[in-house]
Design a protein around this nucleic acid. Sequence first.
RNA 1: GCCCUGGUGGCGGAAUCGGUAGACGCGCAGGACUUAAAAUCCUGUUUGCUGUAAGGCGAGUACGGGUUCAAUUCCCGUCUGGGGCACCA
Length: 1155
Amino acid sequence: MEYDFRKIEAEWKKYWADKEVYKVSNDSAKPKCYVLDMFPYPSGAGLHVGHPLGYIASDIYARYKRLKGYNVLHPMGFDAFGLPAEQYAMETGQHPAVTTEKNIARYREQLDNIGFCYDWSREVRTSDPKYYKWTQWIFLQLFHSWYDRTQQKARPIKELIVILEQEGNEYYACPGDETLTFSGEQWKDYSEAEQRNVLMQYRMAYQGYAQVWWCEALGTVLANDEVVNGVSERGGHPVERKNMRQWFLRITEYAERLLTSLDTLDWTDAMKEMQRNWIGKSNGAEVQFRVAQRASPQPSPKEREVLRDTARGGLTPALSEGEGGVAGLTGPVAANNEDPTWRTADKTLYDKISPLQNELKNHQTEAEDILWQEVRNSKLGVKIRRQHIVGRFVADFICIPKNLVIEVDGKIHAEREKEDAARTEYLEDRGFKVIRFTNDEVIGNVTAVIEKIKRVLNDQNENELRDTSLSFGEGRGEAFITVFTTRPDTIFGVDFMVLAPEHELVDNITTVEQSKAIDEYRTYVKSRSERERMSEVKQVTGCFTGAYVKHPLTGNELPVWISEYVLVGYGTGAIMAVPSGDDRDHAFAKHFDIPVTNIFGDRYTGEKAYSDKNGVIENSDFLSGMSIKEATEAAISALEKTGGKRKVNYRLRDAGFSRQRYWGEPFPIMYVDDIPYGNDEPIVHNNHILGELPVELPMVEHYKPGPEGQGPLANIEDWVETEAGERETNTMPGYAGSSWYFLRYMDPHNDAAFADRKATDYWQQVDLYIGGTEHAVGHLLYSRMWTKALHDLGHIGFDEPFKKLLNQGMIQGSSRFVYKFSNSGHIQPEYDFSKLASIFISKDMVEESHHDENVKADILEFIKQNDGINSVVLANKKQGFDLTQNRVDVSLVDGYELNVEGFKKWRPENSNAAFYLNRDGKYICGAEVEKMSKSKYNVVNPDDIVSQYGADTFRMYEMFLGPIDVSKPWDTKGIEGVHRFLKKLWRLYADEQQGWIVTDEPATAAELKTLHKTIRKINDDIERFSFNTSVSQFMICVNELNNCHKREIVQPLAVLICPFAPHIAEELWHKLGNEGTVLDAAFPVAEDRYLVDNTKVYPVAVNGRTRAEMEFAIDAEDTFVQSEVLANEAIQKWMEGKGLKKFIYVKGKMINVVV
RNA sequence: GCCCUGGUGGCGGAAUCGGUAGACGCGCAGGACUUAAAAUCCUGUUUGCUGUAAGGCGAGUACGGGUUCAAUUCCCGUCUGGGGCACCA
């Protein structure tokens, strides 16, 4: 009776499935335990041997806990939405739902093959409408809620509305626009559009603007992944950053709670540290620098346009730029300011534009004058103004309450048309309607013109603006650059300012002289990724704006630069540069020859910035002589008098939640007159309710992007345009479904709620969560936030999802390479290179050729004989030969030796290739450790290992490879050893000739000691997730038991190994005569009475160096031990008669004699 | 660049709280069984020197310092592999 793992494993897999032994009930008297794996994205490549590493670990733990008497929830499902399926669809035309279904089936088969104890009746798939109905539902909860900073929790938006009606927002600052203030009365006066606009600034799920990679050539938005070296990965087309309206989650409001509650979690310090850094809390001050008014004039709008066109080679006017900021919708009209000019003008440019306005007023054209007289006399019912400043323009006529701009133009020519189009776009972006008339039209038939104006005014709804104020800065004609600094103590060391190139002020402060340079620089920056901008520190780039700010304390003027190293999304998008104290600022100052103020005395050498945080501040007015801590406090106090303030800053940014993709959750959002409503809002429009959940993803014909970079859904007109309104066409990102899936497993088939409260109250948090560190900040942060939000809104009873987190390392691939002769660099036109044959040189011979001329000559001769064109390399004999390195499928390589015949079949173009072999007649491949991936031909399928050795061997071998959290390359070397161990274990129970050999003889003390030592070790190892040492201990145990077949020993052993090797354990359990699954057995208990030793062999060291071994009773007295040791001959010899200095006796450990 | 993490024999790794470095397995070498092979079993295997041998002496946990009676373990610095850096999941 031999160990027939194929038969055993098939049999018990079927038994487990038939008897539903893994089915878990929500109703149990046992204590609960929730063990979860990060669910996989079902890629087309299938599972490789790296994936199951964590799954095996969690499976061992789940089985162990079950044996220990727990009710264990151990589910599995699929993160089924994602970009790869969509890309695959674009390439092959297959619908992502189809390929995903296929991939999941394969994953399922592979997982089952390994014998995991998942309760598949609880499987979830994020792409299933029954699942994403609740993803949408949770999104709506976030949309319908806001964060109350006083109570530090999310609350329903309804409650905010009540507050705003009563008292305005005086006590509840608007997180989307901190400058927005209004009273209860003002709130009530707002139109619905304005109110919804304000609420949007409060919502946990809100709309704002963010930059995406836009690829003109592909007409689509690209992921960071798809942009390589500044061009698109597919096709290599140029890409640029584009500002798009997007959904966001206001995770920043949770920053403090996400930070502090980390302390309650049993995660590794490294993991917590990563989250802390991601959240990036820093204490410091916000400082305001007033933009100085200088003699040098800023360009007029029209001058600016011309300049810009010149800079861009006259291509795209970009007047809608400069909105900046991640979440950038400005609030509605600041209703407390009565001056209508003030309401529409760009304040920073007011002083510059104002004279132009007056000039234009005094020099009206004939047509303008005619129209003005007509407008004044015809009772239009609304006030029309002329020559009015809007943003950076002077509009000919404007009707503010109706947001209408009327322009009267001279002769239309191409240049002017372009300018006008840009201007119209700028104004329309800000909610104005623009109508144009030519001089001829006005002069020829002014009545018709007035009639048209009337019609348009009628159609224009009042106050339908998203944004009319365009305001920033706090006073007329003034602008401020706000910076956040963690080092207010260095305020007197500020030598210049640096703005992010995308900063909204750049357009307004740049002088005429610098305008062209700034535009050119910004064009360059657009092509750079954030990663590049942060990492390439050696190369200093930047551009002077021509503007200056006033230092808030000294009043000195400081130049304002822009540079790519300042990112718009970080802090305020601007920094005060202190070159003597910051490395990058220092490099910048040196590069652009900006004089450096030294505030650190001798510690700053002029060569390198002094960025340490100790010592005193010097050369800093009243801060001089203070420590950094004191100076920080004193500086903040002083700055507070000039508009600065103490501030806590977080690096965390709001999470972008829109994707311009097809294969993701549709948003349950409906636009009515361009105002977004939640699909569940009780609003009736055109006699239609907005809709119900789920909003199902419609079928599409193709996956091409929609117009203007929208997602593919925008192409389906029938779907977008509904009776009730217009649907949102973006979809949710990958992390939407995965942010809450652990809750769904608790109650996966519930159609009335995402999960019944009873179920979530029973299962509570995940007790053990296993997954890779690559999720450290993405998935783990978002799911923590969702959990907190659901908790705040009263849907669940806990606010942290994952109590204990265990990180699994990666199993990397070990790639193999072949070396092919190539003719690069041997341009010899007399040869027909199309006839060049494939020649591969063995790796070891390539290496020998580097230092052995004979080998080199031999290889060259070989090439000459086999290259099909004869003697191509001879002319280059001195240099040798060029090789290209190509990956080869690892299945064609045994260790490092290439299966040459297999290789020829694998790549038919090489079927006639010649191989230069080594002296043993082998072709040796090169090797490199890389990510395991299909494209690198280094993927190893677990199915192959399982069919060769069995699932039990595979499970134990993966664990035996090393600690669960350490990454290592896959290598099957050694799997034989584990397989041999299982065979050896089997032989404790059964013999090939004699069959079943378990006896009822009583065990010896030594055998019991071995067993109980093993029980204790396995128990401890599982508790601390040290599975590799468990496997070792099993091996030691079986070795020590030698030929013991006693039931008293081998029955507990069968239970003990069940978590690791469930199939063989089940087989042995039943063969031992037990009924039911081994999972219902009890985990054996280690009994101390078999384990206690009376004596211990101590290592005895002299001065820390072990010189002898001596045996003592475990409870031997110090004095007795000391006298015995000192009397020992070997010890005496090593003491060399020197006196005893110290005698160290650590009970149960060792003895050290210090002389 | 920044953050995290690792580096121990020919290889995967062990040493759980600062206490005999190299457990266990692979590989390799030698041997037993066998007509032979497979399977199985036994012995040896960090390294240098020394000894016929039992053994003895020294070095050694990426590198350079430090703390300690004692350091793979703690501290400082350097080199180096891997992961993450906000639209891959």
